[in-house]
């Protein structure tokens, strides 16, 4: 199962990642990070397909994407 990891305290809440997810699972968290922004996050991780669009458009290298190794 692919997985997205957000380094939430680096996030500046620009929301660009929320516009590119084909599964619409990247959302802005209700909590506030160390910088005072609502950081981006994924609640329904099981829907992630590991396309890495979110990481690709993130200007602050907040996002890491992991995938199963292809056999």
């Amino acid at each position: 199962m692919p997985k997205v990891v957000f380094d939430e305290d680096r996030c500046k809440g620009c929301e660009l990642c929320t516009t590119v997810c084909p599964k619409n699972i990247v959302v802005m968290s209700k909590k506030i990070n160390a910088k005072g922004y609502h950081p981006a996050t994924v609640d329904e991780m099981d829907k992630c397909i590991g396309c890495a669009f979110c990481a690709n458009i993130c200007p602050d290298t907040v996002i890491e994407v992991f995938k199963e190794e292809k056999k």
Partner: peptide
């Protein structure tokens, strides 16, 4: 699991000073 996206080694871990959403960070 392998990492398919994240911070490249050629980028320092220091946080960019750019405004939120500024695409300098992508470039």
């Amino acid at each position: 699991m392998i990492k398919v996206a994240g911070r490249p080694e050629s980028l320092q871990s220091k946080q960019f000073h750019y405004c939120p959403g500024c695409t300098h960070g992508i470039i």
